[in-house]
Amino acid sequence: MTRALRLIIFDVDGTLVDSQNDILGAMTHAFERAGQPVPTRDETLGIVGLSLDVAIPRLAPLLDVSLHAQIVAWYKEAYMDLRAKTGVAESSPLYPHALATLRALHAVPENILGVATGKSRRGLDKLLDGHGLRHMFATQQVADHHPSKPHPSMLRAALSETGIDARDAVMIGDTSFDMEMARAAGIPAIGVSWGYHAADVLSAATQIIDDFRQLPACLESLWEISQ
């Protein structure tokens, strides 16, 4: 009996790659240039996953809308400069065992891989090309074309593009935004403990893993239960 196609959707920052140094550096630069207090590390990492036009007002709710937009622009500029200086592999390294796990999942004919990220199209392209991963992801949802997480638009688009039912899909991420987005789309979610939100806030996750190598078995268990 032929197995159904499975859609495995990954968040990027904090799930596939650790880009926190550039995120923190770019945020520091943007707020200092605006003459504003720099958010703490925890505050900055707490908004990773949101689109920048949503994240910056959360970090500085009392600032004028026009200054929010300027901080967003300065952040993007600084982030690109930092990435250009060090290269993708150093500025956004893959987490341990991520590449081997992606290759193993991609090699299974029934698995369709995708990403749903708060990054821009340009930012995702740079990242995927820098790691040689573009060919692995059949559907790529970015902030340019959707409302910010946790709105389910990205996941609904991924399901539509691939023709896969929500019950045969899963979202994998490190933040509460990823988990809430999945729940809103009717998709089970797997949380990862190595990212930017503490595991105890991933309450909407079906399961939480501590190592990429646990993912294949976790997926099999999840889909066995759903049958």
Rank of each mutant, 00 (worst) to 15 (best):
M1I: 12
M1G: 12
M1N: 08
M1W: 13
M1E: 07
T2D: 10
R6E: 15
I9G: 13
F10P: 10
D13S: 14
G14N: 00
S19R: 13
Q20R: 15
D22C: 14
I23V: 03
L24W: 13
M27G: 10
H29W: 12
E32P: 04
V38F: 11
E43D: 11
L52N: 07
I56H: 08
R58H: 14
L59K: 06
L62N: 11
H68C: 14
I71C: 08
A73Q: 13
A78Y: 05
D81S: 15
D81V: 14
A84N: 11
K85G: 10
G87Y: 01
A89M: 03
A89Q: 08
E90D: 13
S92I: 13
P93D: 02
Y95T: 04
H97P: 00
A100G: 06
A100S: 15
L102V: 01
R103I: 14
L105Q: 04
I112G: 11
L113G: 10
L113W: 08
G114P: 03
V115N: 06
V115Q: 06
T117V: 03
T117Q: 05
G118P: 12
G118Q: 12
S120Y: 08
R121C: 04
R122A: 15
K126Y: 10
D129W: 11
G130R: 11
G130A: 09
R134A: 06
H135F: 10
V142R: 06
D144A: 00
H145S: 11
S148Y: 11
K149Y: 14
P150K: 03
P150L: 04
P150C: 06
S153M: 10
M154N: 01
L155K: 00
L155W: 00
A158K: 00
L159R: 03
S160T: 09
D165F: 00
A166Q: 01
D168I: 08
M171P: 08
D174Y: 02
F177G: 02
D178I: 07
M181N: 02
R183V: 09
R183H: 10
G186T: 03
I187L: 03
P188W: 02
A189W: 05
G191H: 03
V192N: 00
A198Q: 13
A198L: 10
S203L: 15
S203P: 01
A205L: 06
T206V: 04
T206P: 02
Q207P: 07
I208N: 01
D210I: 08
L215V: 09
L215T: 08
P216K: 06
C218R: 12
L219K: 02
E224I: 05
I225L: 12
I225M: 13
